[in-house]
Design a protein around this nucleic acid. Sequence first.
DNA 1: TCGCCAATTGTCGACGTCGTCAATCCTTTT
DNA 2: AAAAGGATTGACGACGTCGACAATTGGCGA
Lengths: 335, 335
Amino acid sequence: MVSIRDVAAHVGVSDKTVSRVANNEPNVSARTKALVEAAIATLGYVPNMGARLVRTNRSGVIGLISDVVSTTPNSVDIIRGIQDRVSTAKQSLLIANTAGAPDAEQRIWRTFQEHRIDGVLFATMYHRRVTFASRPTIPTVLVNCTAADEPGMPSVVPDDYEGGYVAALRALDQGHRKIGFVTLNPKIIAAELRGKAFIDAMASRGVEVRPEWVRAGYLGGIGEEQLCAYDVARDMLQAADRPTVLLTGNDQVAMQCLFAAHSLGMRVPDDLAIIGFDDFQMISAQVIPPLTTVALPYYDIGVRAADRLLAILAGDVSEGGVECLPCPIVIRASG
Amino acid sequence: MVSIRDVAAHVGVSDKTVSRVANNEPNVSARTKALVEAAIATLGYVPNMGARLVRTNRSGVIGLISDVVSTTPNSVDIIRGIQDRVSTAKQSLLIANTAGAPDAEQRIWRTFQEHRIDGVLFATMYHRRVTFASRPTIPTVLVNCTAADEPGMPSVVPDDYEGGYVAALRALDQGHRKIGFVTLNPKIIAAELRGKAFIDAMASRGVEVRPEWVRAGYLGGIGEEQLCAYDVARDMLQAADRPTVLLTGNDQVAMQCLFAAHSLGMRVPDDLAIIGFDDFQMISAQVIPPLTTVALPYYDIGVRAADRLLAILAGDVSEGGVECLPCPIVIRASG
DNA sequence: TCGCCAATTGTCGACGTCGTCAATCCTTTT
DNA sequence: AAAAGGATTGACGACGTCGACAATTGGCGA
């Protein structure tokens, strides 16, 4: 592979001069610069980041650790957001995922250190709290999660509370007063925040929260949830006194509620309104009728997290703490 | 950061000896080895891949180019498969995506060259043919796509034909003779293969293919498809003579067919059977009733592609050509 | 014309690692 | 006891790049 010296020899200048051109440093005459650039093009010279790393101690690579557990396809959007920023900053992305394995995380940090990663983005596929065995020695930004022990660690998460509040307001503003809520596993942070928002929103309008209309759409602990929203919804909707709108923990729950409504001959949104959460477009946009839902700003989360990490790497010390991104409501036909 | 020399000094041996231990080379006495390992642990030495690259010209990194276009969440499984193999081979994954941008691809190849990537996996998010501006100079395996110009280029794709055949056989074996098919955009390779398989399977049992029962579930060209399966299915199902089972281009289409059936008061699978494709579990497993569908072996595709690339990098010359992986049918309740 | 200053270019070495080959150190064998 | 031979260890330099600093060039005013 052609090196900086080959280019230098070809033009008849020193390797350092070529280096200057390659790195866009000042103090190279226009003539020399043109000559060198021509030689670079004809010879097909491509700088060697490895050598550059050895010399400068900056790899130009950012590491991404994620905990993908197959079921959540939205990771893609977070990664897209990260990618876009990282690549415009002329950095590259090295990825690895823990896949839930406990020892994997250790291995990954080590690999990252071997490559002398400049910084790390630690992303989870649902909004949760994480614990680190040992405080990361590399600048790190948390994506879609917060650190249980280290409150000051920079992190970017969706504002589930606000999203939940907006969803509830939508139902209230549409005139509903009999409002049901089919929740996620309430142990998940997202569910907790959304649940609190629901209660607060109801209180703000003086509407009663009916406990028998607040039901879990999932069975089982974290990581082994089993969707049961269909049965739960049917049960709720068959009672003599039933809600006229269902808020839901996510779009999958909403979809099952939709099936439940259809199975009981109810029309959506006329007989029953349904409001989703997450905006899994594969579902929300293509279910009949399409879902009114609260969008998780996955792409933006990725963007912000990358921006913050880049800022930190650039020497900005002010960056720290948890940042909540708004969850806009997407109005479609279901409620 | 602590270097190999620091370790050497700490133990009182030469740096080369530490290098030998770090790389598990033979001809180090057990005693020395133990000493060095202890020093590595206490000092927290981590080898510098950059330096290693400069010396050996092998980066230990594999590049992954994908063309993610947001809508297809299954990428995750391909990547998971790749990850698993790449990491057990003690390699790392550098990722980048074209996001459809034409110039992006150039930039990515360049970045990969800068990092002296050992090999490249080029993955597309749906099964299609790709064209390269210039033949890759780095060993490359195609994932979920084939090369339009270079027939010999190693690639791994799902066997859509076989999957389509199996789906059709399922319908036939269940006793159906009035079989409808709501297709994808027929310009997509996958759709083409599945369509051919459908016709062949029907012919193999001497069952007539009714043109009015073979309808597109999507409108619009590649990349800008609009799902219209709901309307199409309702139209087909309201005719006096209607199919008793619908084969579908994918699970989203199947889901809309399900809604169509429900809207007409038909029960699935009793009044109408529906068979999906792709096994998007977010949909297929949680729709009511859950879908019988043909699974795309995304994870396996990732695994095989990575294995083949690793084999090539290890010097295996026999690897080449297109490899088709079987698409198993997943029996659930819908058909 | 000479001196001075800024702009441009070059020299040298170090970064961390490992390949090459030479130098030791032990065992065996005779 | 000496020679042989294998195992172990070390010295040295090169990989490609760039930082520090030195050297050279050219322009301009005096």
